[in-house]
């Protein structure tokens, strides 16, 4: 029972984290906070993928093998899911790239307008 709760707790937390990030991206006025929100949203998604790839009682997805190159028959259930991992490796890298671009833009915008505050910037721009 408790285990089941944790199982769905996991997914609930995923949704909560993502929504925190989304909310920050949409509603926060500060550009840096928006960037943080974006990063949080992305980690939420990553957590989602990792959660779905988790296996109870599994080990790392590094196969046991003998040194002479021969290998045993592999039971997939014994190893963690590699596919979700590599998908998320990609997502992390994409995320940091996007974050870098967003921060750069935020920095330039700040220098133009002396502010990180979205409304203030828009006021200034519309003058």
């Amino acid at each position: 029972m408790l285990q089941e709760l944790i199982a769905s707790y996991n997914y609930i937390i995923v949704v909560v984290i993502m929504m925190i990030g989304l909310w920050a991206m949409l509603a926060k006025q500060n550009l840096i906070k928006k960037c943080i929100g974006m990063a949080i949203f992305q980690t939420g998604i990553i957590l989602f993928y990792i959660s779905m790839g988790a296996k109870k009682g599994s080990t790392l997805p590094i196969l046991e093998h003998a040194h002479d190159g021969a290998h045993h028959a592999v039971v997939a259930a014994h190893y963690a899911n590699p596919l979700t991992q590599i998908l998320m490796l990609t997502a992390i890298v994409v995320g940091v790239a996007t974050l870098g671009v967003a921060l750069t833009l935020a920095q330039k915008v700040y220098q133009q307008n002396r502010s990180y505050h979205e409304d203030k910037i828009l006021e200034k721009l519309s003058k």
Binding site: G53, L63, A76, A77, N81, P82, L83, T84
Partner: peptide
């Protein structure tokens, strides 16, 4: 179910990679 080693995610393509 969370952690199920035979869920579609773990069983279909991923299992092929492992084996």
């Amino acid at each position: 179910e969370w952690g199920d080693p035979y869920s579609p995610v773990n069983d279909h393509v991923a299992a092929y990679y492992l084996t």
